[in-house]
Design a protein around this nucleic acid. Structure first.
Lengths: 158, 158
DNA sequence: AGTATGCATTAATCTATGTTAAGAAATGAG
DNA sequence: CTCATTTCTTAACATAGATTAATGCATACT
């Protein structure tokens, strides 16, 4: 259980690294992403203060995700499975609920609906990351996000 | 801990129901889905023998998912959180890994890539459900699946 | 057997989002 | 402060997948 200080841009974990660690964000903001075969980055999650970020991949002990600091941050590093209790079960359940919801959004909602949902759900993150990262999290390009946002504003005015 | 016998088409849980239960599939095949505001069904998961199916939603005690039998099935009903041990943690981790992978596929892979991945990962399910259900799981329409499959075959011949 | 229902396929057309490119605005580094 | 880099926006064009509709098959129902 170590405490790590990270500078903006520091990469905490890379694809292929061991993924036996779990990181609790004590301060700052991290994000986890993949880079696909075409070299494109896709943001899997943001991790602000209080969140746990870890890659639990299907391939044992091999991370699929990169984890990187968006801001200077402090994280507490723990071994995975180092605590088994009511509280940790609740955290697992909550994580599953979040992931389930994300899948449902990706399958059933349009880009602008996903964006609206995101800014309602994570208003504090919206302020702190570039739009292109939000676009990536939503599964669209920055250009598309720019477009649907301005189309939305115009429609509201009408 | 009850054992339930289900007939094909039986709905085990509906949107809005309590979601305090967890179902272990002992025999048969179930699926979980949402119905969106436009009335469209989106399949969230299939649950063959040995799998656990449950809705862990963000809204406490309120299911977002429908759970229904695709085949005559037998499930064991348990209370959520009724066991906390190494084994259950592993199951939670595995579920999270599956969901993470699904999100990554939805964000980074084309329809045909998602289809190829699906038939490799769940060959036993492919045989037992209509194509339209696979399309729904992949996040596309049955027509689109039909199209990309035949386009794929033609490309392979070339 | 005959009819109804659900499923798969194909095709024409439409639309949301991707791609490429350029310029403007904001941010950061020396 | 200035230059370089990153970010955002807009626009023209391209494409994957959606929509609608028609047809052919199965399967199930009477």
């Amino acid at each position: 259980m170590k405490k790590l200080k990270l500078l903006k841009g520091d990469v905490l974990q890379r694809k292929g690294d061991s993924n036996s660690k779990v990181f609790l964000v004590e301060q700052g903001l991290l994000y986890a992403y993949i880079i696909d075969e075409k070299g494109k980055e896709h943001i899997f999650m943001f991790a602000p203060k209080g969140w746990i970020v870890a890659d639990i991949s299907l391939i044992p002990n091999k991370s699929e995700l990169y984890i990187e600091a968006i801001e200077d941050s402090i994280v507490i590093e723990k071994e995975r499975g180092s605590e088994i209790n009511e509280k940790s079960i609740e955290k697992f359940e909550r994580r599953i609920a979040v992931l389930q919801n994300r899948i449902i959004m990706l399958m059933s909602a349009s880009a602008i609906e996903r964006y609206d949902h995101f800014i309602k759900t994570y208003p504090q993150i919206v302020q702190r990351v570039p739009q292109r990262m939000i676009a990536s999290y939503l599964g669209i390009t920055p250009e598309a996000l720019s477009k649907v946002k301005s189309a939305n504003i115009k429609n509201n005015k009408k």
